[in-house]
Design a protein around this nucleic acid. Structure first.
Lengths: 334, 334
DNA sequence: CTGTTAGCGCGTTCAA
DNA sequence: TTGAACGCGCTAACAG
């Protein structure tokens, strides 16, 4: 049987509550009795039982992480494991436990959240959503349960979120191209409904404007899925259209791989290409791809920070955090 | 406030214990009262409180996963995230919760295990060890706490483990080379103290023997660290030694990358090379690398199965499970 | 400053 | 077959 607070009390010759007080250094206690209690704790090797502590009203100090089981995303990059590690770095420092669950789809995702909440285990939740998932957010808001989302919520007010600074990141990419003398820059992105696409496109436009370059809608592509073939098709479209272009930025490395393929097949030279996400492949291909590194670690760490801060200070207002990413220059922009 | 068992009891007009019995369909209960209770549960939207349930003596149905924060390993492949997903697939099916923690080093690893056990949260632990970590194993055994290890424990008896079938995997690789007419096959592996190295080397030897090929110790290399440069150095050594060789097998893709580099620099042609672990780079390089895919998902799933089976049946004997891997043939063996 | 006491929500005796 | 009562280990009033 494990050592309980009671045995410590007896050993130290004090009452249960005194021991509890020493444990939480709540009210003032004589140094002397505090010493006696601490000695007893050491001697008996006492460790508090979190379960009992939680039952008695203390927060569980446990955070649940909900991961979408989108295999594509999962295999292609190390985003999730890095985000999870980021979360763990902050949470463990603060003495929090972490729970996780993979969910096959939206529905299951909500079910797990429900289970986390209902069971009483967790006191806060981190949503690790690649895209939007309003079902989860709504459920959490309806239940007034503390949570933070990594990614771009469609409605960012009244919720805690952490996201990349997509606007600035794309602006930096475009500025690089312009500094290299490029002017006719094509843009290939995901669905315009995604906030991440909107933000990156806005960053793109802002730099064009700053440099007095008129955006040409014929060079703008928004696709509903992320794939090499979409990138290939878009690039071919540009080429066939005859619109002049000297470079291509995309919101995902996958598009860029397709674009590079199209450029090679059609014999187009000197077209600079950039990607996004720094997928493993980007550094191995030839030419290697200039892309943007998402700081998943930092995203996770800040998500944990935000959540825990709100857990420990209930009347904090929800807030959002933008994390900067790193532009990685490689051969496709030389 | 959440709905408690008490409110259900009142609603159904029965006692607390009756509700509890219905929940666990323990002893016999009249269909009629069972119905009444179930209706009350539905009506009130009752969900059991796991915390209270655990305090009262039920198992927590929670598994702790300890992940080494070896950044090298973490970044280079998707092993961990896949193993974690594998674990989740089985555990979630069985209604278990999962906790995880990253640890910087052995010492911290033991500390987390200690915390998991002492806090009372978890009822079993999965060790996700890249290599051996006897400290953790010893601690767990000393405390007689249920656990399973993914990887190769140095002492496999009396503990639950899940590992790749390294012997067979390497045998398959060597057989492939022999089927391609290769005879003088070099072996580059990690430390001979590692069981994984021993097993793979044994698989290698077995096939040579089967094919009446005399192993040449001049072609066998065991290095203490996994890196491209080690692979490069070993290969150069072979070349300088003048010993005839027509192919190289390694126990890690990293060695193979170094080997390929050495072969190219020294202008050696027609040397087949194979790796291990199917790192992302292996499919992108030119020529692409023939390697062995570790089924991390399956490792995780079986680890969870083993642990949960032992959790639910205390007098089960510890056992080990070997998971088969897949040989991926690519250009370096054509 | 410290002890006493009453729960937290549930499982499990022991009687009935 | 069901109910009453106690306890799991701890926290938080309320006294003193």
């Amino acid at each position: 049987m494990r050592v309980t607070i009671k045995e410590v009390a007896i050993e130290a010759g004090v009452s249960l509550s005194t021991v509890s007080r020493v444990l939480h250094n709540n009210s003032k206690i004589t140094e002397e009795t505090k010493d006696r209690v601490n000695k007893a704790i050491k001697k008996l090797g006492y460790h508090p039982n979190f379960i009992a502590s939680s039952l008695a009203g203390k927060p569980t100090k446990t955070i649940g992480i909900v991961i979408p089981n989108d295999s594509d995303e999962l295999f292609k990059n190390t985003f999730f494991i890095n985000a999870m590690r980021g979360i763990s770095i902050y949470a463990q420092k603060k003495g929090y436990f972490l729970m996780y669950s993979f969910s096959k789809n939206d529905e299951e995702e909500v079910r797990f959240i429900e289970k986390y909440i209902r069971s009483g285990w967790v006191s806060g939740i981190v949503l690790l959503n690649a895209y939007e998932n309003d079902k989860c957010i709504n459920y959490l808001k309806d239940n007034d349960f503390p949570f933070v989302i990594i990614g771009s919520p469609s409605e960012s007010k009244d919720i805690n979120w952490v996201d990349n600074n997509n606007y600035d990141a794309m602006a930096e990419v475009v500025e690089l191209l312009i500094s290299k003398g490029k002017k006719n820059i094509a843009f290939i992105g995901g669905s315009k409904n995604l906030r991440v696409t909107k933000d990156r496109f806005a960053g793109y436009l802002s730099v064009l404007e700053k440099n007095k370059i008129t955006p040409q809608s014929g060079l703008h592509f928004f696709r509903n899925s992320f794939s090499e073939s979409e990138g290939y098709n878009c690039t071919m479209e540009i080429i066939y259209s005859g619109i002049e272009f000297d470079s291509i930025v995309t919101t995902d490395d996958l598009y860029s791989y397709g674009a590079l393929k199209a450029l090679e097949e059609s014999g187009r030279k000197n077209i600079m290409v950039t990607g996004f996400n720094n997928t493993p492949k980007s550094s191995y291909i030839n030419p290697s791809l200039t892309t943007v590194e998402i700081n998943a670690d930092e995203l996770g760490e800040n998500a944990a920070r935000l959540l825990i801060e709100h857990l420990e200070n209930k009347n904090l207002k929800p807030s959002g955090v933008l994390i900067n990413s790193n532009l990685i220059e490689r051969e496709t922009t030389t």
